[in-house]
Design a protein around this nucleic acid. Structure first.
Length: 473
RNA sequence: GCCCCCAUCGUCUAGGGGACCAGGACGUAGCCCUUUCAAGGCUAAGACCGGAGUUCGAAUCUCCGUGGGGGCACCA
């Protein structure tokens, strides 16, 4: 039975790299009909942010990554919050102490021996006698528990993505397992918990690659078998630098606020470091659940491209039903738009929207025509200039005034016929109408679509305004 | 500094010894369609980091170099 886990620490937001780790772990579980677990790694008392637990749940829910076991969803391996597992780490640390694979260190954080160049092993406390230790403990000195790394030899492990990796033990330091506040470090807790929770595939960022041998040494000390390791390539920016929230790069929830669909974001990041091996790029989560495989994960870091995400977002938008799109688009419509048939507007918008946040700027003119230059009536491709525009606007006014019913099809047929009669290109007729109706160079939908939505009265009003503008020009 | 990892178009990638004068996608440019802009269709430009080897044959294997990234916390 495959068991994977996503083990975020509560930082308050979902980093894009973490989301991908979660996604891959989730997909690996689903693909293999296994179990996906959520574990909270809150072992840093200083960095804990209370409300960030809620943020994790919310993000996962928004992403659609449902977990089978986790806090408040016990699967028999809990608790799933590390701060609630302190006795477990204590007990395991004692076992290591007893075996001699760990030792107490009484050095203080700023001690010179702590500042040495790495590996900062050869810790003086390594060689403390039982009597020394007893004495210091008697005196109530604070201590941490460190892992005792063998002086010689090397440790080899196999990563499912990176292959076989060997590191000399001399390169490893006697890392802290238990802090002086009694909390475990990540280095210790992840090993204990991954084993106790029966994790079969440890999936995490590539930054853990070089500390993995230390974890393996721990597994060995406990006599446990090591899990499969799946280290994931980093996600970077297009300029090659790190993708980081602190440097202003968006988190998952930021991207959603920027107008990206969660499923499009998931789809996009699935492709950052993994490839299906086919030409397909548009995926729903459910499809990924069926085809994701670890052996198609890449080794090299991938740059996050907003351009491609934006495109994919558009693909997801276009794949929706009109109803779905309308529901999502509506909150982005400016208040005064409520008087119009917004469903019709959505229909025009769906094929042109890349991000939802673009919507307000695309529909502003419905509410009010912006200031624009009369030169806008000049359009080479439509064979339109100021004179033809004025003539057409004038000629078309009585025709539209008498038009019934007032709908796109009727408007288009009528205006097209008018153009044919007067030997105008359809575009020459439509250009000035669309322009006077909107005042902008590009609109969702053409002249007649806009006219339909604006209604007869408003359409004629705007045409009149256009005529006045052209006469003054 | 020491250790580890990585290296195909600007970007994501396919490729794993002959099917590759390297395929797809985003982006870019052009054309078509057209009631503006999109969407859609078509086309174009655009890459195997360098050098040695192995081999009849290397983008693919090996080594060296170079470049990039990561790690070396009582952070995860």
């Amino acid at each position: 039975m495959v068991r994977t886990r996503f083990a975020p620490s509560p930082t308050g937001y979902m980093h894009i790299g973490n989301l991908r780790t979660a996604l891959y772990a989730y997909l690996t579980a689903r693909r293999n009909h296994g179990v996906f677990i959520l574990r909270i790694e809150d072992t840093d008392q200083e960095r804990n942010i209370p409300e960030s637990l809620a943020a994790i749940y919310k993000s996962l829910k928004m992403a659609g990554l449902t977990y089978d076991e986790g806090p408040m969803k016990d699967g028999g391996y809990g608790p799933y919050v590390q701060s609630q597992r302190l006795p477990i780490y204590q007990e395991h640390a004692q076992r290591l102490l007893a075996k001699g694979d760990a030792f107490r260190c009484f050095c203080k954080k700023g001690d010179p021996s702590e500042e040495e160049e790495s590996p900062s092993r050869r810790d003086p406390c390594r060689f403390l006698t039982q009597a020394d230790i007893a004495e210091k403990m008697e005196a109530g000195e604070a201590f941490v528990i460190r892992q005792r790394i063998p002086d010689s030899g090397s440790t080899t492990f196999v990563d499912l993505v990176y292959g076989e990796i060997t590191i000399e033990n001399s390169q490893l330091d006697d890392q802290v397992l238990l802090k002086s506040d009694g909390y475990p470090t990540y280095n210790f807790a992840n090993v204990v918990d991954d084993h106790l929770m029966g994790i079969t595939h440890v999936m995490r960022g590539q930054e853990y690659l070089s500390s993995t041998p230390k974890y393996n040494l721990l597994y060995d000390s406990f006599g446990w078998t090591v899990p499969e390791y799946v280290h994931l390539p980093l996600i970077i920016k297009e300029d090659g630098s790190k993708f980081s929230k602190r440097l202003g790069d968006p988190s998952f929830e930021d991207l959603v606020k920027m107008g990206y669909l969660p499923e499009a974001i998931l789809n996009y990041i699935a492709l950052l470091g993994w490839s299906p091996g086919t030409d397909q790029e548009y995926f729903k989560l459910s499809e990924l659940e069926e085809i994701f495989s670890i052996d198609r994960i890449n080794k090299s870091s991938a740059a996050f491209s907003f351009d491609k995400l934006t495109w994919l977002n558009g693909e997801h938008i276009r794949a929706m039903t009109l109803d779905e799109f309308h529901t999502l688009a509506e909150p982005y419509y400016p208040e005064p738009l409520a008087g119009f048939n917004t469903t019709k507007i959505s229909e025009l918008l769906q094929v042109r929207t890349e991000k939802f946040t673009d919507i307000p700027g695309m529909v502003d003119f419905f509410v009010q025509v912006p200031e624009y230059d009369a030169e806008m009536y000049r359009h080479e491709k439509s064979k339109s200039d100021l004179d033809t525009s004025l003539d057409i606007l004038k000629a078309v006014t009585p025709i539209l005034d008498n038009l019934d019913p007032w709908n796109n099809d009727q408007l288009f047929q009528t205006l097209k016929a008018f153009g044919k009669e007067k030997s105008y290109k359809t575009g020459t007729v439509m250009w000035p109408i669309r322009t006077t109706l909107s005042g902008v160079m590009a609109t969702p939908g053409g002249a007649t679509a806009l006219a339909e939505i604006l209604g007869k009265e408003e359409t004629l009003k705007r045409i009149k305004a256009g005529i006045e503008k052209l006469e003054a020009a």
